[in-house]
Amino acid sequence: MSRLALLALLLALVLPAAPAPAAVSPDEILDDPVLEARARALGRQLRCLVCQNQSIDDSDADLAKDIRRIVRERLVAGDSDEEILAYLTARYGDFILLRPPVKPATWALWAGPFVVLALGAVGVALFLRRRRGREETETALAPEEEARLARLLGSDSPSS
């Protein structure tokens, strides 16, 4: 009984940690666990061109399966990860990479959010500074203004 409870506890601990099931079917998996791990890592970086927002590792599309197979074949043949990515981008362009490479054509893409953030910060700083300036001028009256105010108030209400 206590052993069963222990088993249940262990399962409860282990199951949530299990990785999300990939579309990789058992017959695709390589015997060498190191190569398979590299294949999985590559598969997660590669876009399925049919479904576009899934990686080839997650997609059941035929083309994703074909590309998974090519990745594994080339790994077994001894290609480096970079060589495999180069092989695929030569055919499908950078679009097959889920993470766009940093190059002149993508500088705007990568820097854009930071530029917008910086512009926003400048805008907020200007706004705050101008408001503070206005508050100061509004609170501090020049001596002649005070005198005029006193005169006006004095003429309106002789009691003061």
Binding site: L49, V50, D62, L63, D66, I67, I70, R91, Y92, G93
Partner: peptide, 13 residues
């Protein structure tokens, strides 16, 4: 038959 040449042509659909 296996779509390999089509991949060399960058075919996706």
């Amino acid at each position: 038959r296996d779509g390999r040449v089509a991949i060399d042509w960058g075919v996706y659909g």
